[in-house]
Design a protein around this nucleic acid. Sequence first.
RNA 1: AGAGAGGUGGCAGAGUGGUCGAUUGCGGCAGUCUUGAAAACUGUUGACUGUCAUAGGUCCGGGGGUUCGAAUCCCUCCCUCUCUACCA
Length: 424
Amino acid sequence: MLQISILKENKEKSIQALLKKNYKSAIEDIETILKLEEEKKKTQFDMDNSLSEANKIAKEIGELMKAGKKEEAESKKALTSELKIISKNLQEKFEILEKQVFDVLVKLPNLPYEAVPKGFGADDNEVIFEHGNQPVLNENALPHWDLIKKYDIIDFELGNKIAGAGFPVYKGKGAKLQRALINFFLDEASNAGYSEVQPPIFINKDSGFGTGQLPDKDGQMYYMNEDDLYAIPTAEVPITNMYRDIIIKRENLPIKHAGYSPCFRREAGSWGAHVRGLNRLHQFDKVEIVQITEPKDSETAHQSMVNHIKMLLEKLELPYRILKLCGGDMSFGAALCFDFEVYSAAQKRWLEVSSASNFDTFQANRLKCRFKNEDGKSVLVHTLNGSAMALPRIVAALLENNQTPEGIKLPKALVSYTGFEFIN
RNA sequence: AGAGAGGUGGCAGAGUGGUCGAUUGCGGCAGUCUUGAAAACUGUUGACUGUCAUAGGUCCGGGGGUUCGAAUCCCUCCCUCUCUACCA
């Protein structure tokens, strides 16, 4: 959530930034917020005065009672009845205004940084880095959805029977590959100084709000009515929310965590021709890295996350590229976001496998996550997160790119984790 | 799930209707002492809102109520602990 003070002090810039994110009603919404906010403050002033007056009289009554002057005390009580009504009305007005401001404010996406390119969708993203050669496969090369059948390692029909579409069963070497990748990613994160956590995979509403999934993405999460809980779409949510309502000591920053979790996404209305096989699932596995930093350090932290992900992809020997997302393609809460795509040789497509975002103070403001600066003032932190990494599309690319007559040949980095070199 | 107890400032722990935003201890910070440190002693130390700065206002698990006045009384929800039951 954006800070009103920023919208007020940098009104024009804020409007331009929101427009870059294709937020259509930027002008009118900011006008509305500033107008309502001013009225709110006025109301608060009146309300406070009225409450102050009432407090004073209450105190006087208390003293009179103590002094045994009952009649005087009784007569003072009469003074308060009108004051009570006034206070109550002002309080109601204040709460309405507060909610009105909140309702508009909560709809505003984060302001993208200067560096974010203009654009409306995927076509406007900037490729900023590319690594590795796209493998040339022979004619009878198979896409991963055929390879998983050929080697009987991932079973969609079985998952369909047990749960539904998008919930595959990993079998044999397929299951071991999952476990190997998770361990590989977690170990690499540990080596890079991320302390490991295993978070809950269900979260409450406050957590969903804290990282920005609620109310924006309500329909995209699985929801358990009986207990009022959501299944996490990413470990970012529980991990970042560990620091909700916390004032962090400056010497403890930056905070770096990594965590593995299954991720659950309803993906309502997003199925089509390009989402076959492992390209889109309702449940998948992911190792997430999260950082919480002082504002001045977040860009460096972001870069370090990008470098970490690059290193992972290089160890996995996958050709990849990095995109700087344009305003229109960025997520709701991000101020700057890099997507990583691997080349999947049989599909002849780039697949998104990771996304590293800097949220600036957007999440911190919702989370009320702050630190004490040099002057002893509470200041919002910056939060960042990135996938390191999401498994299914990595698996898709590993299978497709490394198919040989002898089977699927795994990259060296994984062999010590799987215990086998070939899936055959 | 049943019975009981309880949720207070970074932590521990007082406070049961009127200078209580809250005694006290620990921790933190500053100072005295010391070559330096420790110990001891002294002072200081919650968050939010608001103001140029004061002032003022709000917050004792969440929400609602009673009252001139609520941390304290009532209702409701949530959570924690102990015992019993059940169980990976």
